[in-house]
Every structure is written in C-alpha cells, then in structure tokens.
Simulated scan of single mutants.
Amino acid sequence: MAKETVVVVCPGRGTYNAPELGYLARHHAGSPWLAHFDAVRAAAGKPALTELDWAAKFDPAVHLRGDVAAPLIHACAFHDFLKLDRERFEVVAVTGNSMGWYTALACAGAVSGEHGFAIADAMGVNSQKHESGGQAVIVMAGEDWRVDPATARGVEAACAKVGVLPSIRLGGMLVVAGPEAALDALGRELPPLPRPPLRLAGHGPFHTPLMQASATAARASLPAAWFGAPQVPLIDGRGKVWRRFETDSTELWDYTFGHQILAAYDFTAAMTVALREFAPDRVVLLGPGETLGGAIGQVITALGWLDITTKSVFSLRQEEDPFLVAMGREAQRRIVAI
C-alpha cells in the first residue's frame, strides 16, 4: 500500500497551557531523548522538563515564561514527530510557526536532535532579551473565517499610524508587536473587529527589530557549524523552501538568527507554499495543544484547497476524514502515531 504524504507543522509559543500539563508524561514518559534533555538542563542548573511537565498544578508565572515554555513545547513537538508512523506516512515537507521554526530545523534534519534542543532551550532565554514591548493578536476573520479586505486595510493603517509592526501573519489573524505605548494606542485606532485585540502575556516584540539583543545573543552562542542541509524540504517564515541539495548551511544559520528573529514571520505564506507545492494527503500538526489548527484551517479555506471554501465545509471534512491531523487531539493522534 502506498504511503500517505504529510506536511508536518511545528507549533510555537502559546501552545502549552493548563490542559497540556503532563503532555510529556502521557505520551513520552521514559523516552531517552527526554532523559537527554533533562540532563542538559540539569548541567546548566535548570529545572528538568519532567519536573515542569509533571507539576501538580499549571503555574502561568512559571510555565508561560520563555525559558520554560520554549523547551517544553519543543520537547513535546519533537517527540510527537518521532512518533509518526513512518510505515504509513511519508513526510514530504516540514514547517513551523515562529518558535516552531527551531523544532522544524530538527525535524527536517537541518540540525541534530541534540542541537535542535540546545537551540530551542537557548532561544527561550534569548527571547527575553529585547527592548521594551510586547505582542497582541488581532482577529480579522469573522465566524465564517473570511477576512473583509476593507477590515484588513483598516488594521494595516491603524498599525502604521501608532507605530506597531506586523509580527506573525496567521491565517485570518495578525499578531502585531511594538512598544507597550503603541500597543495601548492601537485599540483606539482599529476598525470594528470580530473581537477586541488580545495582548499576549509574557511575550516580547517578537519578529521585529526590537529583538536585536536576542539575535545578537543567538549569533554569539549558537554556531553555524551546527547547521547542515535538511533531509526533507524545510519551509521558512517567508515561504522559502530549503532543499537538501540546494541549501547553503551558513545562509540557513543567518536566516534563523537574523531575518527569522527581526522581521515578520509569515506563517500564512509558509502554509500556502506547503499546500500548493507539496499537495500532501494530510497536514500533521504536532502537539502540544491544537490552537494553531484554526489558523491552518483559515489558510486552507482561503485557498479553497480540496474545495474547502467555508468553515462549515472544513469542519464536516474534519469529522469524516481529517485532512488536518492535530496530534494534540487524542482521537486524531491515533490516526498517525505509532
């Protein structure tokens, strides 16, 4: 029987929350990789991931901090990737959202598993090195997942007026970033929206020039020698595809700790390229959580992919035979995991 082709998506910050507490314990207890990750953190005087994941209670002040959230999310996603049933599924491309790019590097084989964790762990710390500022999520899509072009133009104009920059393009949503005062002023300039903008607690002005300190720290401590060519195509936050026999590893390092940190991350473009260029039988969203599923569904709907043109059609398809398989959702996990 021919294998089904899949594009793998690695999640970023904001995907390990109270419902995900214990994710590693439930799905990956006893993993040698997890033991290695814990040993690396112990050597650096950091709490073990198993200790954090197996805590009696989710503590936002702890679990949502960058130096905790980043390695936890990476470990969950990387382990999920290793659980894919390779006898039945062929990975034809890998991409990620924001911090998920570091996990995507490891899943695609552009860096080793050891170096992938070292990068994610270090960037969890580095992500806290930035000028003052934060992020907010602007929901532009209505209940039908459609974005009114006039609304999109109004949001763009409001952001430009107060000095807020696009941070992540996320289907029918736009994550913006900038100084706190600019984010405070943004709400007064925005056009009518399906819901008010949501400030992201504990997030810095990611994917903007305000993250220069983070980029500088990354370049100083995470060497280009760790990088090689990906073993499967790797789609970055511009929609560029890095291929095995075409990749300059130094350029990949430069993108990872330059543009990827300091400029807007276009997850919409990445997913558009993933669908149009690789035409997978399914899209697999690694855990933890499944919050990125809505954005992926919005991209699919906007493209009319597989004749999915509305949210209701997407939902019906998901009930019958999921095209988007979220490993953070137990029923769907069983479709692709060993």
Rank of each mutant, 00 (worst) to 15 (best):
V162F: 07
T256P: 11
R169Q: 09
F267M: 09
A217I: 04
P197S: 05
S167N: 02
V155K: 06
T216A: 15
K129L: 15
G142E: 10
G202N: 09
F257V: 00
G133V: 04
K240I: 13
P166M: 08
W253T: 01
P191I: 01
P194Q: 01
E189H: 14
A263V: 02
K240G: 08
A225H: 03
R199F: 15
T208E: 09
G228E: 08
E251W: 04
A225M: 00
R146A: 15
P192W: 05
A225K: 10
L210N: 07
P196Q: 03
T216H: 11
P192C: 03
H259R: 15
G133N: 00
K161Q: 15
P197N: 06
T216R: 13
S132L: 08
T256V: 06
T250H: 14
M211F: 12
A181E: 15
R169K: 09
I261F: 05
G258N: 01
D144Q: 03
L193W: 08
L210K: 06
G204Y: 09
G134V: 08
G134S: 05
C159F: 04
I138S: 03
Y265D: 13
P209V: 10
A158W: 08
P179M: 13
R199G: 12
D148P: 07
D266S: 13
A152H: 09
C159L: 13
L252Y: 10
T256E: 11
P194C: 06
E189T: 09
E156A: 15
P192Y: 03
A224R: 10
T151L: 12
T216G: 01
R153M: 10
G258M: 06
A201H: 14
L165G: 02
I138F: 09
E156S: 14
R219V: 00
E180G: 10
H207S: 08
P233I: 06
L183K: 00
G163L: 04
T216V: 14
A157E: 12
Q135L: 13
P205M: 07
T247R: 05
E251R: 14
D236E: 09
Y255A: 03
P209Q: 01
A220R: 13
A213Y: 11
L174A: 09
P209S: 00
M211E: 08
C159R: 11
A152G: 04
L174T: 02
F206R: 03
W242V: 04
T256I: 04
R188F: 11
A225G: 00
P205K: 01
